[in-house]
Nucleic acid binder design. Structure first.
Lengths: 132, 132
DNA sequence: TATAAATCGGACTAATTTAGTCCGCGTTTA
DNA sequence: TAAACGCGGACTAAATTAGTCCGATTTATA
């Protein structure tokens, strides 16, 4: 349990590789996927999502690709994971408030407390700790 | 992401209720499922799993059910979750060592470090913090 | 200026995991 | 001996994740 998805995994692999290049270099999806033996199309989705979120910058057209656009020491795992995968929550009631057993649920309070601590844990880890 | 499964959720709801009863009381699955509006058969699986693991004790036969068998302050979320759901790991390579992209993977080391920290985080939370 | 190389994003299918159900069995109470 | 309980395997259904396909747009360059 607690797995991150493949899409996020591929995103991290790409970021790490891009960070190893000279600053400002452009890397494209085909190159990234071949070099790391990961499915091109799925990686492409991850790259697009990261570009939309501003972690990386698109360079469009032929000879295009992506380049790093942000300081990974300033991005937390908490925000990265939430953008890639949605809210970090142990139970659905942390995100939504229409749980069918809400009335008779006796554990939502303590679990939400633990959830907040878990988010804090991930907010203290920077993306750079993975990519550097 | 990071959701615990329904089975584990139901397990916690049951444990919390059982702990609210007089010490040594027996609770049965039907009663627990009705009281908390949760599917009986799925809860039954959770109870059986907890009994096998020694968290609770089976009382068999008619008027049977389960009673608490352990000190929840001494059980960590880490071990509870691992027993209910399997290894706590962000990536598969923490558990298994036959990842197809192992060769070209550049993130397994930092992720495994973070994984260890996450396990430590959960090992410092006791089951009693939820059920009490 | 045409072509090739690249991203964009929606729609789709396949695979895997999770959720939930069913049923025949053994045990114990009354 | 019948009813109430847990046991556990097999099964189906639902949801999520993984992976693919394709038509559109942008840009470099031959």
């Amino acid at each position: 349990m607690m797995k991150i998805t493949k899409k996020t995994e591929y995103a991290l692999i790409a970021l790490k590789y891009m960070q190893s290049l000279e600053s400002g270099s452009v890397a494209n999806t085909t190159e990234l996927s071949e070099r790391h033996s990961i499915p091109r199309e799925l990686l492409a989705k991850a790259m697009q999502q990261m570009a939309r979120s501003g972690f990386i910058q698109t360079v469009s057209g032929a000879k295009g690709g992506y380049k790093i656009n942000s300081d990974f020491t300033q991005i937390s795992m908490d925000s990265f994971l939430e953008i890639m995968e949605g809210p970090l929550s142990l139970v659905i009631c942390t995100e939504e408030h229409d749980c069918p057993i809400q009335e008779s649920c006796n554990i939502s309070k303590p679990l939400n407390t633990i959830n907040a601590k878990m988010k804090l844990f991930f907010s203290n880890i920077s993306l750079a700790e993975i990519t550097s």
